[in-house]
Simulated scan of single mutants.
Amino acid sequence: MKRLDIFGALKKDMDVIEKELYRSIEGDDQQLTETSLHLLKAGGKRLRPVFVLMGGKFGNYDIDKLKYIAVPLELIHSASLVHDDVIDDADMRRGKPTVKSKWDNRIAMYTGDYIYGKALTLTTNLNNPEIHRILSKAMVEMSIGEMEQIRDFFNCNQDVRRYLLRIRRKTSMLIAVSCQLGAMAAEADRVVSSSMYRFGYNVGMAFQIQDDLLDLCGTEKQIGKPPGSDMRQGNITLPVIYALQEPELGQRLLKEIERIHALNGQCDVSEAVGMIRSSTGIARSEVLADRYIRKAIDALDSLPDIKTKKQLKDIAHFVTKRSY
């Protein structure tokens, strides 16, 4: 299923969001504007703005109001990616050089901070304190999730529960509040905004698991970076955790991860990737992602039976079937 097959009905308003994204990062400092533009031009799925707009369909839909939620959420996500690339020492993202690799770490960090600031500036156009509280909490949780990931680099003793808590904070919450705040900004019923939050939370969990699977099973052309990049950085993801649980293979994989750690990830990781691909870790991760998708679809049951409801189901199914 192609992106436009799902989001085609929102194309006109997504064009508005795209223009607002570019307009929002313009400022007095030419270099910060340039580095921010470089990031936006690399593209992206724009999943968070889409969820904001779809949440708005269950209330008083107004693109001129919803854009003050959709654009900041995409900017917050983008800023976190700039910081991620510094932490991960990543040279490529979405098949293009990262801000960090094209300029340097310092400029990348300030670019991320600048984009965060621009996001918060835009939200001042909304006078609902609850929206600001929810958004602020999500940003705090994201930061905690990032710190947890750093602390767990090359930690092969972590369990599935620890991994799930980390991706809840790092990825899922921002997708959940995108769905929730779209409904809230459109003054939808509280039952609707709560259901949208649950939908987004479960889709977000499945989305991150699928991302972790693609990092191991995808091609460089599909994912815009070499397969096994997470392994090089020491990010122990769900398929790896499952593979480490296998008695014989787990011991061999552990030794390989220890070798990668000793070399600071500056080595070939294809042997470790091959081990994980041959393990049950891939299939077990897919099963868990599918379970989250079923929960996401169940969360839609209480929503009004409008066209958007079916589109949300289509997106949910797309998340675990995507190859990028």
Rank of each mutant, 00 (worst) to 15 (best):
T219L: 08
V82I: 12
F51N: 04
I69C: 02
G27Y: 09
A176D: 13
F318N: 07
P129S: 07
L300A: 12
K2G: 15
H317R: 15
I134D: 08
L254H: 12
A42G: 14
A108T: 12
I293S: 10
F199Y: 15
Q31N: 12
K225E: 08
D28E: 15
V86E: 00
D85T: 01
Y110I: 13
L214P: 09
N157P: 00
D113K: 04
T237Q: 01
S195I: 01
L39N: 02
V140E: 08
D64F: 08
L75P: 00
D5T: 13
T121M: 14
I63F: 08
M92I: 13
Q210Y: 09
D314F: 13
R162V: 10
D152A: 11
V50S: 15
D89H: 13
K313P: 01
Q245L: 09
D113N: 09
D85F: 01
V82S: 06
Q311A: 13
N264K: 14
S279T: 08
L39R: 02
Y197T: 11
A206W: 02
L300P: 00
R168L: 07
K2H: 15
L53D: 02
I306G: 04
Q245Y: 03
I115F: 05
A90P: 00
V287T: 08
V99K: 06
P226V: 14
L73E: 03
S24E: 08
V52H: 04
H132E: 14
R93W: 06
I6T: 09
M196W: 09
R23G: 09
M139W: 08
I297C: 03
A183Y: 02
Y197L: 12
I241Y: 05
D13M: 05
K321N: 13
M1D: 03
I175Q: 04
I175W: 10
R190P: 10
R277T: 12
R93T: 10
C217S: 13
D89L: 13
V177D: 07
N264R: 14
E148L: 10
N157A: 11
D89R: 14
L216C: 05
A108Q: 07
S195V: 03
D5Q: 14
N202I: 02
D88M: 04
Q31V: 14
A186D: 13
L135H: 05
A316N: 02
I257Q: 02
G281T: 07
T35Y: 09
M1G: 03
Y201S: 03
P247W: 00
R161K: 09
K221L: 13
E286A: 01
E248F: 04
L53V: 00
P304E: 10
S172G: 15
M147Y: 11
D28C: 08
V287M: 11
P247L: 01
A108Y: 06
I87P: 08
A299M: 04
K170W: 12
H83A: 05
P129D: 01
D88N: 11
A262K: 14
N155P: 03
Q149E: 14
L288K: 05
Y68A: 02
I276G: 11
H132T: 06
T121N: 10
Q245G: 12
K255I: 03
P239F: 04
E18L: 12
N105C: 05
G27N: 06
V203G: 00
D211M: 08
C179A: 15
L303H: 04
S194F: 08
G145D: 06
Y68K: 04
M147K: 06
T308M: 15
L174C: 05
